[in-house]
Write a protein that binds this DNA or RNA. Structure first.
Length: 519
RNA sequence: CGGAGUGUGGCUCAGUCUGGUAGAGCACCGCGUUCGGGACGCGGGGGUCGCAGGUUCGAAUCCUGCCACUCCGACCA
């Protein structure tokens, strides 16, 4: 089959899926590596997708009562020393600013040793500490609570190994930080935001997820409880797509976030934090991409309908162009998924065939072609990106212009739903619930995971009953799973009552846990 | 920080073993024919061959040192 990409995602070979992923990111013009190791350049089409992601998620965050603010990029080193677990979790990946001036020595630019900072500054890896510091001044009374703040920002974590969008040294995200008068209110907030992420991921990104609580060894440093949404990529691996943390009073104590209660008592707040990042973009690629490139859910496509005019440097070109302009204008006047339909007439000088495939690779949901024949007949010819091919043929349809314009909003809405349904079917079909012993688990995931050369068949997730071991017993489980390159993803929220015994300990099970290879 | 590998035009790479003064495909520019399912012909622009030193009449090629990147591992809310 003729493909837009030189590598296929579905060969069953473990090594080609990452190559396919990189090819899609490049060919869809989303992002590229930068001169700075591990940091990416997000290109206009990729940033356009991020802007749609931001817009929709921001609306949901505001609808749940939060307001946006902005805090500094640099955090004094001493702020991290206040929460022991927190600093331990991030210490190994911090970028540190130690000087504030350069000078020229023998024609060379060097750091001026006399410009050393009194106290080093950390480039934020996350903002709990600096926002908590502000909270300690903002909160006085129970009447100031709850304090519901969000910020859109970039953060830096000095990662050893990076991949575009999935793990980069700098990434863009939103981080919510809230303070509450009591535990119940804070825990409710934590779960509310988990649900916002779940709904956003499924409705807007068309990316089905499993929401649940992380086992204690996977908790955010300093958190009392961590929750996540986990999405299944097309190679079967799990991607943590968003997290929400109940921080208890740990950060409040460390940073003195206190309030006077109605009874006049001085109490520590209960705080939460939650975040989702540009990693979501990688999730969209690995959920919806195919061998022709990216497929974008209409809700996050910067252009939902792209019109490619067939031009031949002949007089009738003008007619085709004005026909295209009228079509773009008519489409823009319609409403799709609650917003103005985003249409574009592609008037670039490239050949029509090249432009068409460019938009296929970028994942534009509907690609319209109009030529002299369409203009004369008052019709359009179009293809939908989610059903591009009928066997080896490109599947296109023709329709009278007026009818097409009227049907686009419903068509895009249908594509949004069908992309989700496709991914949901894939997720549901690939969670094994019949594996009840370590031996069966080992057999399923392969006894020799170190043999990278061998083509490996697709592996999904396993949902199995467990006894929720803690401490050293959990460490032992984790170490054992590591021999199969597996991790505990989360404890799904929708528990239907566990039965039988724990897959790891043999003790009576209390609930199900998700086991998978992860990104 | 360990193990392996790679640095040659914008991209993918050949050429290195056996030294002779830089190539292919794609992309780009021009002209023409084309264009409704990834065009073709002709012409053209673009590279201090990762950096520094050495051997040599002559180095992309041989030697020494350094640097960068990729993959595997360690690490990864």
């Amino acid at each position: 089959m003729q493909r837009a990409l030189s590598v296929s995602r579905m060969t069953g070979n473990r090594s080609t899926f990452p190559e396919w992923y990189q090819a899609v990111v490049r060919e869809a013009d989303l992002a590229e590596n930068s001169p700075v190791r591990g940091m990416m350049i997000i290109k206009p089409w990729g940033y356009g997708v991020w802007e749609e992601v931001q817009r929709d998620l921001d609306r949901r965050i505001k609808e749940t009562g939060h307001v946006n603010a902005y805090f500094p990029l640099f955090i004094p080193l001493s702020f991290f020393a206040k929460e022991a677990e927190h600093v331990e979790g991030f210490a190994k990946e911090m970028a540190v600013v130690t000087h504030h001036r350069l000078k020229t020595v023998n024609g060379k630019l060097e750091v001026d040793p006399e410009a050393k900072l009194e106290e080093p500054l950390i480039v934020r890896p996350t903002s709990e500490t600096i926002i908590g510091d502000a909270f300690s001044r903002w909160v006085r009374s129970y009447r100031d609570l709850p304090l519901l703040i969000n910020q859109w920002a970039n953060v830096v974590r000095w990662e050893m190994r990076t991949r575009l969008f999935l793990r980069t040294s700098e990434f863009l995200w939103q981080e919510g930080h809230t303070a509450h008068a009591d535990e119940a209110d804070a825990r409710e907030e934590t779960l509310r935001m988990l649900e916002v992420y779940r709904a956003f991921s499924e409705e807007t990104l068309a990316m089905p997820v499993i929401a649940g609580e992380k086992p204690e060894n996977e908790r955010f440093p300093g958190a009392v409880a961590t929750y996540s949404i986990e999405a299944m990529m097309q190679d079967g691996r799990a991607l943590q797509a968003g997290t929400s943390h109940y921080l208890g009073q740990n950060f409040a104590r460390a940073q003195n976030i206190r309030f006077q209660s109605a009874a006049g008592e001085l109490e520590y707040c209960h705080t939460t934090s939650w975040g989702a990042s540009t990693r979501l973009m990688g999730g969209v690629v690995m959920t919806h991409g195919d061998d022709d490139g990216l497929r974008l859910p209409p809700a996050i496509a910067p252009r939902q309908v792209v019109i490619v005019p067939i031009l031949r440097d002949k007089p009738e070109d003008a007619e085709v162009l004005s026909y295209g302009e009228a079509l773009a204008k008519a489409l823009t006047a319609t409403t799709t998924l609650g917003e103005r339909t985003r249409a574009l007439l592609d008037v670039r000088g490239q050949r029509s065939a090249d432009k068409r495939w460019d938009w296929v690779r970028r994942g534009a949901p509907i690609i319209v072609e109009i030529g002299p024949r369409d203009a004369a007949a008052g019709q359009v010819t179009f293809m939908r990106r989610d059903q591009l091919r009928d066997g080896e043929k490109i599947a296109s349809r023709s329709m009278p212009l007026g009818e097409f314009v009227a049907s686009v909003p419903a068509l895009l809405a249908e594509m949004q739903v069908s992309l989700f349904a496709e991914a949901k079917a894939m997720l549901d079909a690939n969670i094994r619930t019949d594996i009840r012993s370590w031996d069966a688990l080992a057999e399923y995931f392969g006894a020799a995971p170190d043999d990278e050369d061998e083509a490996v068949a697709f592996r999904g997730w396993v949902r199995a009953p467990w006894s929720r071991p803690t401490g050293a017993a959990l460490d032992a489980v984790e170490a054992r799973l590591k021999t199969l390159k597996l991790t505990l993803r989360n404890i799904p929220q929708d528990q239907s009552g566990a039965s039988g015994q724990c897959l790891f300990t043999g003790e009576p099970a209390v609930e199900d846990v998700l086991i998978a290879r992860a990104y």
